[in-house]
C-alpha cells in the first residue's frame, strides 16, 4: 500500500511539473521595455536563435531578426514560449521598436 502511495505521489508530481511548464509557455507575456518609438504586428514565430545577450527571433512576413534582450529571471520562460510557438503557425502579438528591432512585449493573441 505504501509503495503504491509512493508511486502515485511520484506520478502526480510529474504531471504537475509537466502542466506547469505548459502553462508557463502559454501564459508568458514578456516584459515591457520603455521606448519612444513603438510599432506592432501579429505574426507567427518561424524560428529563433540565441546569442549571449539576446534571443533573435524571425517572424513570418518579416526578414529581420527581432531582438529580445535576455534577462536571467525569465530566460527559461522565453525559451519555452518560443520553442512552443515556433512549432505552430499560431500568431503572437509583438510590440517592438522599429528603429532597433528590439521587442518590447511579446504575447499570445488571446491574452
Amino acid at each position: 500500500m505504501g509503495q503504491f502511495l509512493q508511486s502515485f505521489i511520484f506520478v502526480l508530481i510529474v504531471i504537475i511539473l509537466g502542466c506547469s511548464k505548459h502553462a508557463t509557455a502559454a501564459q508568458f507575456k514578456g516584459y515591457e521595455v520603455k521606448s519612444s518609438s513603438t510599432a506592432e504586428f501579429n505574426e507567427s514565430v518561424v524560428r529563433f536563435i540565441e546569442s549571449q545577450k539576446e534571443f533573435l527571433i524571425l517572424f513570418s512576413k518579416h526578414s529581420a531578426f527581432y531582438r529580445f534582450p535576455k534577462k536571467q529571471s525569465i530566460d527559461i520562460q522565453i525559451r519555452d514560449f518560443l520553442e512552443a510557438r515556433s512549432k505552430t503557425a499560431v500568431k503572437v502579438r509583438v510590440k517592438y521598436n522599429p528603429m532597433t528591432a528590439e521587442i518590447q512585449k511579446i504575447e499570445d493573441l488571446k491574452n
Partner: peptide, 21 residues
Amino acid sequence: GNLQAKIENSFFPLNKWGWHV
C-alpha cells in the same frame, strides 16, 4: 540563414536578418 551585414554611415550600422533578398 543567420545573416549579418555591417553598413558604414548608416542609421542601422549592424543588421541581423533571418533571410535577405
